[in-house]
């Protein structure tokens, strides 16, 4: 299966322009970037994709390959290789921030810069490290997941999210956004929230922008500061936004921070 079908790759924007590769986090799909990515289409080649099991990705799921974030990072490298992308600015939200770090370490020749939105190298508290969660919280989240995916397998599942009052969004989006096979979602949740990539941060060797919401309970301020301090030469942009998804709730802030970063020649 070619990579475009496998990962629902959307390749838009300025042909021959500098590549911005947008990666979504756990839970939803490339529509997480719908208020940010279009802004860059006049100045950049804008590439979006869905991780395995998310949105329109057709890639077959392999429990072993995707047991850790490495498998997801391999996919990112594969997308770059097959589309022959170079000098890539990787823009990763949430867990995809760390997936981008891993992809960069795997194929340093491909990536020119990293933009990490709400990154966390480890979600669970550890000796002298505040990740924001205990192990029990993660189990609690897995329970919340399975409770919300109850109706997934039944034939009526896609209709549940139907939004007759906003037809402009399109049936496909309303049916697939933030919905995934519960087994895959649970495994992705485990790979995400049990990961520990702290040791990878000092190895990053490209200009990096860390974007931190003023108030984010998934990746709290202390975590954003930790990431910025651990990646050599990185800069930290604190957004005046609340919640873990500034790309949706404060897209203008995200765009501004990226443009400032690019203007600094990064």
């Amino acid at each position: 299966m070619n990579v475009t079908r496998a990962h629902n790759v959307v390749d838009a924007g300025l042909p021959g322009g500098r590549v911005l590769l947008f990666a979504h986090g756990f839970g939803c799909d490339q529509n997480m970037w719908r208020y940010v990515a279009p802004h860059f289409e006049s100045s950049h080649r804008v590439v979006l994709f869905d991780h395995v099991g998310a949105g329109g990705a057709q890639a077959p799921y392999d429990a072993e390959r995707y047991a850790s974030l490495e498998g997801y990072a391999d996919d990112v490298v594969r997308i770059c290789t097959e589309l022959d992308l170079h000098d890539v600015v990787f823009v990763g939200h949430s867990v995809s921030a760390m997936i981008g770090v891993l992809a960069h370490l795997r194929a340093p020749e491909v990536f020119a810069a990293l933009v990490l939105v709400g990154p966390s190298p480890r979600y669970i508290n550890d000796d002298g490290y505040t990740g924001g969660f205990d192990r029990a919280d993660i189990d609690d989240m897995l329970a919340a997941l399975s409770s919300n995916y109850l109706g997934w397998s039944s034939a009526i599942a896609p209709a549940i999210m139907g939004t007759p009052d906003s037809p402009e969004l399109g049936a496909e989006l309303t049916q697939s956004f933030c919905r995934a096979d519960p087994d895959i979602a649970e495994r992705f949740a485990r790979a995400t929230f049990l990961s520990d990539n702290r040791a990878d941060l000092p190895l990053v060797s490209v200009p990096t922008l860390v974007m931190q919401s003023r108030d984010d309970m998934i990746a709290p301020m202390a975590v954003g500061q930790y990431v910025a301090a651990a990646i050599p030469g990185s800069s930290l942009a604190v957004l005046d936004s609340s919640g873990h998804c500034p790309n949706l709730s404060a897209p203008d802030e995200v765009i501004r921070a990226m443009e400032t970063f690019f203007a600094e020649g990064r």
Binding site: G25, F26, G27, C28, N31, M32, R34, S94, F133, D134, A136, D137, I138, D139, D140, M141, L142, A143, A144, L145, S147, N148, L150, I160, M161, T163, D165, S166, L169, L173, T174, F177, C178, F193, D216, M217, I218, G243, H244, C245, L248, S249
Partner: peptide, 29 residues
């Protein structure tokens, strides 16, 4: 919400609300 519910809220409910304009039948505690 419970800690698990908070993660679910931030990774599913909030994005759906901001993109789709509404959410239905979300199970939380």
């Amino acid at each position: 919400l419970t800690p698990g519910g908070r993660i679910y809220h931030e990774t599913h409910l909030a994005p759906m609300l901001l993109v789709l304009g509404q959410v239905k039948e979300i199970a939380l505690e």
